[in-house]
């Protein structure tokens, strides 16, 4: 039984690592800063969730599982906040997304017409 649980946990950890690789590829491949943020922040929280869930399964009911859960909670709190702060700062400082022919906001359209 515990063999199976360990195996499942390890597979989840591998899945988390794969998610992290995909996120890194997205950060390299995507065209502008905002899409890159999207790739990085979503895969960060997703990979962390998968990996920590896997490690919790491996460690079983112990203080380790509690510490892992604490790490998960902190990552869930800080990583999206940091991404939000960063995009907020970038947009405020004049970095504009590549939108092609579309304009999402009136403000952007006016700016483009200028």
């Amino acid at each position: 039984m515990s063999e199976v649980v360990t195996w499942i946990g390890s597979s989840l950890a591998v899945a988390g690592a794969l998610a992290a690789i995909i996120g890194s590829l997205g950060v390299i491949r995507f065209p502008d800063f905002y899409t890159r943020t999207h790739a990085a922040s979503i895969t960060d929280t997703g990979a962390a969730t998968l990996m920590i869930l896997g490690l919790i399964l491996i460690s079983g009911w112990s203080v380790l599982a509690l510490k892992l859960a604490i790490i998960w909670a902190f990552i869930m709190l800080t990583s999206p906040t940091a991404a939000h702060a960063l995009t907020n700062a970038a947009y405020g400082a004049g970095e504009r997304p590549q939108l092609g022919p579309w304009r999402l906001f009136d403000r952007d359209r006016k700016e483009a017409e200028r």
Binding site: S10, S11, A13, G16
Partner: peptide, 14 residues
């Protein structure tokens, strides 16, 4: 062994 593979994958991502 799988965990070592996960560590290798994570290092690739880094």
């Amino acid at each position: 062994m799988l965990l070592a593979a996960a560590a290798a994958g994570l290092m690739t991502a880094m």
